[in-house]
Design a protein around this nucleic acid. Sequence first.
RNA 1: GGGCAGUUAGCCAAGCGGUCAACGGCGGCAGACUGUAAAUCUGCUCUCUCUGAGUUCGGGGGUUCGAAUCCCUCACUGCCCA
Length: 388
Amino acid sequence: MSFFKIEKQDKKTKARAGVINTLHGELKTPMIMIVGTKATVKGITTAQLDEIGVPVVLANTYHLYLNPGQKIIKKAGGLHGFMNWDKPIFTDSGGFQIFSMGHGTVADEIKGRGNRHKQKTLLKLSEEGAVFKSYLDGSEHLLTPEKSIQIQHDLGADMIAVLDECTPFHVSKRYTEKSMKMTHRWLLRCIDEHKKLKSKQALYGIIQGGVYPDLRKASTEFVAKQETAGICIGGSLGKNKTQMNATVQMTTEMIGASKPIHLLGIGGDLEDLVWGVEAGIDTFDCVAPTRNARHGTLFCSEAKNKKLQITNSRFRTDLSPIDKNCSCYVCKNFSRAYLSYLLRANEMLGTQLCTYHNIHFVVNFMKKIRQAILEDRLYEFKKDFFSY
RNA sequence: GGGCAGUUAGCCAAGCGGUCAACGGCGGCAGACUGUAAAUCUGCUCUCUCUGAGUUCGGGGGUUCGAAUCCCUCACUGCCCA
């Protein structure tokens, strides 16, 4: 049985509907993974994730290695046993932390805001690996490609990622190229380690190359020919959506159809998911649906920009649901006024309910996109949803 | 009746002669967030004809070039003694 199969290819775009066969069942693509970095989707139980229909949870190697450590997780039956989730899990390698611990958030870095509040905890980056200072206790840790794979092997996710350097936006082309080449060498080391461990996990290689077409091309060619189950597109994609879209477009162009393509970290805006799918992306992951929910930014098909800030004063007395077109538990049972009040009052239930809604919304949005592809009406779906 | 302490912007609370439209915190208003060091972070929050001006620090009066800051007096609050 092949790892990935395309069921339907859209005629007008590179969009496609497919199936990924994981150790914990089939995944229907395109879809979005819900982020649970520390082996928990903040505020939500796995029973609720199941109820919503979440296909995959994405957890993080670096965070789980520092706390509670992969040993206890392995002993608990891997992440699946530890967090009580019997559907597929994807673990990220720690590559993003090489970026975020060294530069700050994506937005801060791209907008050149710097990192005023957080101390940089990436101490050293070299051919061997990355040395981090733990944000928990200050201890130093060396994360190498081999170690990342070993940890992910213990964590036992269905899909795992190679260690890469997620290159920032504000670096020179020369640095991006140097970094990309190191990521390629790390990729080979990861593949070797993966083979050595005789792991059945699906390994994903990661394409870098920043926003430079020639580098993206070189990286794509290199990564695509390696023996990996899937391919991730990572690194800086650009400073705005147009550039991001262009970078992804040119990358997927060169990958070919045999492997599923994962776009790392993108999917916070519904429009990103749409252009991503049209560019040929099969899977996404993004912290935005859950983080935004906690911060009160909720998906809403009725709003012009498809989201609303529930804490805005106008919702204090609005007794209608977040989204009258949404069939989720929250929209069926609670009002905007109640959620607005809960978040203002700093009640835990507020973040929980908001998270539930946002997850339900994106997951179902992806299901609708998939259905539209299967029925040859992606364009119509898009036009209808965004009211073009 | 007497003694002491206090009264600062929506709330709590610093300030105790000029650099005070007045530190902080809460609350309020808005924004940000894209492989999660995020239940976080950033602005704004007396009024106005707003890169300047006008009124504020319980009320009234005074001292001073200048007061939220010193003095007098009144009101209210708290504690203590009768």
